[in-house]
C-alpha cells in the first residue's frame, strides 16, 4: 500500500554561512539530520521530542513549507520535493495541516465560513457559492460546531471551538493525511479530550493518515500507533507505541518517559 506521507533521508541545516571567499565560514546547525518516515492511511504516527529536536522542522519540510537541503518528500506516492509552488497547488489537497494555536492560524478578519471554505475555492472552483456554503455547514457539523455560527469571527470562539474550526478547514478539501502539530497542547484537559475524540472519529470515518507532532507523552500514548523519538535532529528510536512505552531502548527515550508526571500521589519518587 502506498504511504500517504513519506519522507526519505530529510536534512536541513540552519544558519550556514559561507563567508567572504570562504573566510569566516560556519557550518551551521543541522536541525534535521536524515529523517525517514512513512504514514499509511488510517494510522497515526507520532514524532515525539523536546523543543529544538527538529520535529517541527521535519513537519514543515513534509508540508513543503520549507525546502529540505536533501532528501525526498512524497505525498500519496508522488515525489513533490522539487515541485514548484504552482505544481504543488493542486496536490496540497492531499496533505493538510492543523496547528497548535488555532487562533494564529485563522485570519481574524475572515468569517468562519470564508476561512473554512477557502480551500474549496482553490481545489473545487467548480462549486458555486450555495454548494460551498452547504459543504462548509456539513463540515462544521461534523466537527461538532453549529453551522449557525458561520458568520462569526475567530475571536468569538473558545480555544476548543477554534481548534474544531481549524480541523474543519483542513478536512473540507478531503485530504488523505493530516499533519497535526501539537494540536491539543494549548487546550484545557477537558477540551483536549473532546478534540482527541473528534480526531479519532474522523480518522476512522475517512481513513486519514495522521502525522502527530507532540511533546506530550500522554496524548501520544493515547492516539499513536507508532512512535518516532527524535533527538538532536535524528530519530533515535522507533516502534509500536505499546512497545516503546513498555521497553524503551534508547537512553533519551528512557529519560523522556521518566519525565512523564505520575498519575497518582502514591507513585511519587520521594
Amino acid at each position: 500500500m502506498t504511504a500517504v506521507i513519506e519522507a526519505r533521508e530529510l536534512r536541513k541545516v540552519f544558519g550556514r554561512r559561507s563567508g567572504w571567499l570562504g573566510m569566516g565560514a560556519e557550518p551551521g546547525k543541522e536541525a534535521v539530520a536524515g529523517v525517514s518516515l512513512a504514514v499509511h492511511a488510517g494510522e497515526t504516527v507520532a514524532i515525539v521530542g523536546e523543543s529544538g529536536c527538529g520535529k517541527s522542522t521535519t513537519a514543515r519540510m513534509i508540508m513543503r513549507l520549507l525546502t529540505p537541503d536533501s532528501g525526498r518528500v512524497l505525498w500519496q506516492g508522488e515525489d513533490v520535493t522539487d515541485h514548484s509552488a504552482r505544481a504543488l497547488r493542486p496536490l496540497r489537497r492531499l496533505v493538510q495541516m492543523v496547528f497548535q494555536d488555532p487562533f494564529a492560524s485563522l485570519n481574524p478578519r475572515m468569517t468562519i465560513e470564508n476561512s473554512v471554505a477557502e480551500g474549496l475555492r482553490v481545489h473545487q472552483p467548480e462549486l458555486n457559492r450555495e454548494q460551498r456554503r452547504a459543504r462548509t455547514a456539513e463540515m462544521l457539523t461534523q466537527c461538532g460546531l453549529d453551522p449557525a455560527v458561520m458568520g462569526r469571527y475567530p475571536h468569538q470562539f473558545s480555544g476548543g471551538q477554534r481548534q474544531r474550526i481549524g480541523i474543519a478547514r483542513a478536512l473540507i478539501v478531503q485530504p488523505k493525511a493530516l499533519v497535526l502539530d501539537e494540536p491539543v497542547s494549548a487546550l484545557d484537559v477537558s477540551v483536549q479530550a473532546q478534540i482527541l475524540n473528534l480526531l479519532c472519529d474522523l480518522q476512522r470515518q475517512y481513513q486519514l493518515g495522521y502525522l502527530l507532532i507532540s511533546h506530550d507523552l500522554s496524548v501520544v500514548s493515547h492516539i499513536a500507533d507508532r512512535i518516532l523519538v527524535m533527538y538532536q535532529g535524528k530519530i533515535v528510536e522507533q516502534g509500536e507505541t505499546a512497545e516503546i512505552f513498555a521497553d524503551p531502548r534508547h537512553d533519551y527515550t528512557r529519560t523522556l518517559l521518566a519525565a512523564k508526571p505520575v498519575l497518582h500521589p502514591d507513585d511519587r519518587e520521594a
Binding site: 477537558s190 483536549q192 479530550a193 475524540n197 479519532c200 500522554s218 496524548v219 493515547h222 499513536a224 498519575l263
Partner: peptide
C-alpha cells in the same frame, strides 16, 4: 482527592486525562 473525588467535576476532569484511557478508546468527556 485522587482516591475518592467527591465532586462530579473533579471526577470528570480526572477521568478525561488521556493516559487514563486505553489507546484509541474514546475519552470520557464533559
Amino acid at each position: 482527592l485522587f482516591d475518592h473525588p467527591a465532586h462530579p467535576y473533579t471526577q470528570a476532569l480526572m477521568a478525561c486525562r488521556p493516559d487514563r484511557a486505553a489507546r484509541g478508546e474514546a475519552l470520557p468527556m464533559i
